[in-house]
Design a binder for these strands. Structure first.
Lengths: 211, 211
DNA sequence: TGTACATCAGTGAACGCGCGTTCACTGATGTAC
DNA sequence: TGTACATCAGTGAACGCGCGTTCACTGATGTAC
C-alpha cells in the first residue's frame, strides 16, 4: 500500500506512538509528549491511543524506556573505547570513568531524552496490593554502573568495604552534574567546559572511593 | 479593622502572595503555585497579582527566593553545630560536611521547598540586550559552599590546586543525591537510610578532593 | 469456497477542567492649594 | 479645613487555549463451519 492510502487499521500503532514520542522528546522533552500531540503526529484520533495504553502516563513510560536504552547505548559506547586485552586495572578504571562521563555526555547531547530517561516509574503506594517484584528490573544504565564497580573490585582497585554504597556516591555525583548542566545553573555553559568538568568530578569521586 | 472586614485595598498583597506561595509550595511543590490558586488563597482576584508581578513566573521566582533562604538557613544551622574555638582544621571539615548534609537533609525534610529553591531564573537569551550583571548574585546556599571550601584552604586541608573546581564536584554530588532521594529511585527510602548515605557520599567526595 | 459472526482497532463528538492573561472598569487613598 | 483631582490597587467578565478522558459508534479483519 502506498503512503497515500490511509488504511483504517494502522498496523502497528503502539510502536508508531512510541517512536513519535522518541522523536518529539528529542527536541521538546517530556513536556512535548501530550497524548493529543502524539496521536496528531501519527495521524490518528486521540482515543485510538487507549487501545494500546492504559492512560497517558503509560505511554510516557514506554517512551521513557526507549530513552533509557539510548542512554545505555551511549554509556556502552564510551565504555568500549578500550581494548579487551588491556591491563585489567586500566580497563576497570576506564570503564568506570566511561560510565560516568557517558552519562553526563548523554545528558548534554540529548537533554530531551535524558529528561525522559530519568522519568519516574508510577508510584508504588498507588495500587492496592502492589505486584511484589514484577518489573522491578534494574534500569540498564544503573546496571552498567554496578558492573563497572564490580570490575573495579575484581581488578583489585576497590576493596569490598570500599565497594559498599559506592554506586550511590557515583550516581549522585554524575547525576548531579548532569542535572546542573541541563536544568541548573550550568545549563548555558559551553559543552566543552562541561565535558572537562565531567572528567574532573568523575575522577574526584573515584579518588574518593579509593580512600 | 477586624479580620471580617475585607478592605478594598489589601495592604500588602505582594508579600501576602509570596507567603501564600511559600505555604502552598511546602506541601505541593512548584506545581501547586498556580496564579489563580495563589490569589484564591489570599482572597483576591487573579488579575490583582499583576499589580505586583509582571507575570506568573515572576511571582514564582519571588517564592523561590524565600525557599532558597530556608535552604540556606538549614545549612547554616548544621554548620554552626561546632564551637567557634574548635581546631581550625576540624572546624573547616565540619562546616564543609555540614554544607553538604544540610543541603540533602533539607531536600528530604522539605521536598516542596527544595524543588522551588532550585528553580531556574529566567532564560538569559530571551531578552534582547541582557542586563550585564544585574541580579547575577550568587545564591546564598552556593555561597556557603564556596566559603566552606575557602575555609578548607585556609585551614591547610586543601591546596589551591585542589580547590579548583571543587565547588562543582561538591555541588554535583550533594545535589545529585538530593535529586535521587526526592524525585529519583531513592524517593521512598527511609529518611534515616538517606541521611546515612548522605554522610557517606559527602565524605567520599571530600576524600576525593584531597587526593 | 463462501458466508456468518465475533472481535478488534479505529472514528467523531463531546465533557469538564483549569489555566494565564487582557480589557475596561471602579473604589480608595493621599496630596496640593 | 475642605475640596478637587491624580494616582493607585483592586474588581468582574471574558478570551482562547489545550489538555486527558469517556461514550457510543463503525469499518476492517480473521476464523469456524
Amino acid at each position: 500500500m502506498t503512503s497515500e492510502t490511509r488504511p483504517y487499521h494502522h498496523g502497528d500503532l503502539r510502536s508508531a506512538l512510541v517512536q513519535a514520542g522518541v522523536q518529539l522528546a528529542r527536541s521538546g522533552g517530556a513536556q512535548a509528549l501530550g497524548l493529543r500531540e502524539l496521536t496528531r503526529q501519527v495521524g490518528v484520533t486521540p482515543n485510538a491511543a487507549y487501545r494500546h495504553f492504559a492512560d497517558h502516563r503509560a505511554l510516557l513510560l514506554a517512551v521513557a524506556l526507549e530513552a533509557q536504552e539510548h542512554l545505555a547505548e551511549e554509556m556502552r559506547k564510551q565504555m568500549n573505547t578500550i581494548r579487551d586485552d588491556a591491563d585489567p586495572a586500566d580497563r576497570a578504571l576506564h570503564r568506570l570513568r566511561a560510565v560516568g562521563t557517558g552519562y553526563i555526555h548523554f545528558a548534554l547531547a540529548e537533554p530531551g531524552w535524558f529528561e525522559l530517561a530519568i522519568l519516574n516509574p508510577p508510584e508504588r503506594g498507588d495500587e492496592a496490593a502492589p505486584p511484589p517484584s514484577i518489573d522491578d528490573r534494574v534500569p540498564v544504565p544503573f546496571q552498567l554502573l554496578l558492573d563497572a564497580l564490580d570490575e573495579m573490585v575484581t581488578a583489585g582497585l576497590l576493596t569490598a568495604a570500599q565497594r559498599e554504597n559506592a554506586e550511590w556516591a557515583c550516581w549522585s555525583t554524575v547525576h548531579g552534574l548532569a542535572d546542573l548542566a541541563t536544568r541548573g545553573p550550568l545549563r548555558h555553559q559551553d559543552p566543552k567546559v562541561i565535558d572537562r568538568l565531567a572528567g574532573h568530578v568523575v575522577d574526584t569521586v573515584i579518588q574518593g572511593l579509593r580512600g
